[in-house]
């Protein structure tokens, strides 16, 4: 464990909790892509199946359980409890265009051709693009609530910090995982445009709105 990984995990946790609280406090999931949240729930489920097969640490196990629990709670809030506020018309990204190629890629390029390993690889690839429905929704409506941008910023920071973690682990432990690194790079690049808007607008107290 190094500082980048720990802050990355905490940033990830902060993102998840910010989103849950935003929906819970405002009793509304307006502006949130339910599709992205379903994809994240699939990502955690596919990746953390190793909860059943291997134990790494109390920290590792508890974070996995919290991530999975929060992901399903978020999906429940969007599609059941506050369904009336869900903006389905603007959440029109075709997720099959992500899930199908990503599934194929996981079968073709993985570390070991075994069910658990393929599911892990699938989750890594899927996570890298799971935010696209959310970004698509924002580009479609042209705006995002400030709290939603804080969520996206924490989520983007998480994988960015993991990139530093991988550099660290390569130098000090000789460890590198090409699949995680390439997917992590893709994931981080997808946030670059958003990071720019976050710094130039949201941090200066303006609402994030895109030019028409």
């Amino acid at each position: 464990m190094n500082i980048f990984r720990l802050t990355g995990d905490l940033s990830h946790l902060a993102a998840i909790i910010i989103l849950l609280l935003k929906i819970w406090k405002s009793r509304s999931c307006a502006g949130i892509s339910g599709k992205s949240q379903i994809l994240f729930a699939i990502v955690f489920t596919a990746r953390y199946l190793d909860l059943l097969t291997s134990f790494i640490s109390v920290y590792n196990t508890s974070m996995k359980v919290i991530y999975i629990g929060c992901a399903y709670a978020t999906v429940y809030l969007i599609y059941a409890k506050f369904r009336a506020t869900y903006d389905g018309n603007h959440d029109s990204f075709r997720v099959e265009f992500l899930v199908v190629p990503v599934g194929g890629l996981a079968v073709l390029i993985n570390h070991t051709f075994s069910p658990l390993e393929i599911l892990w690889t699938f989750s890594i690839y899927l996570e890298s693009v799971a935010i696209l429905p959310q970004l698509f929704m924002i580009s479609k409506t042209g705006e995002a609530e400030t709290i939603t941008t804080h969520y996206l910023f924490c989520l983007g920071m998480y994988r960015t910090l993991y990139l530093f973690n991988w550099v660290w682990r390569f130098y000090f432990e000789g460890f590198f995982d090409m699949i995680a690194i390439v997917a992590g790079l893709v994931q981080t690049v997808l946030y670059c445009d958003f990071f720019y808007l976050y710094v130039t607008k949201v941090l200066k107290g303006k609402k994030l709105s895109l030019p028409a």
Partner: peptide, 10 residues
Amino acid sequence: QDLEEQHDEL
């Protein structure tokens, strides 16, 4: 590395 890798990251 082990054939059946252990993924220790989240």
